[in-house]
Amino acid sequence: MAERKETVSFQVNGVERELKVSGSRNLLSVLRHELGLTGAKYGCGVGECGSCTVLLDGRAVRSCAVPISAVAGRSVTTIEGLGGEDGLHPVQEAFLETQAFQCGYCTPGLIMSVVDLLRRKPDPTEPEIRDALAGNLCRCAPYPRIIRAAQLAAAAMSSSGERHGDK
């Protein structure tokens, strides 16, 4: 039984990558075991917990459930690439500000889901926040803080957007 490998090219955090891997391997495995990006976590392997959430062409996906072949030619953003070289993304800032974590294992996935939500809905209502994050499980359960973090980030992003005149 030989693993059939194919060459897959895609962008990760703005950097072009070309890998020879089995096309059925999931994105999470490639990120964690080939690219050394361990911010996205394994929690269930079947897309039920959200701790492996990354952005694929800007949209949140469960990387454990995405075969690498489906990533070819596309762009992946992980928690490591979110804030860029200098500083934190407003959502990361908001999670820090509200201390919206305990153990922190599911936090990167939650942050990516909030980034996706705020891209789709810059000013989400509380029910919209809950709906968007219902697939991100957290057993420590500081959920009320996570809601506050999402609201805080939304406010920060909309005011900075206005300031920069790009809204």
Binding site: R32, T38, G39, I79, E80, L88, L96, F101
Partner: peptide, 17 residues
């Protein structure tokens, strides 16, 4: 550890290589 957590840099056992 907050900054490490929100940037994904905080290491858990599964992240050790």
């Amino acid at each position: 550890e907050g900054r490490g957590i929100v940037t994904g840099k905080e290491q858990f056992v599964a992240d050790v290589r």
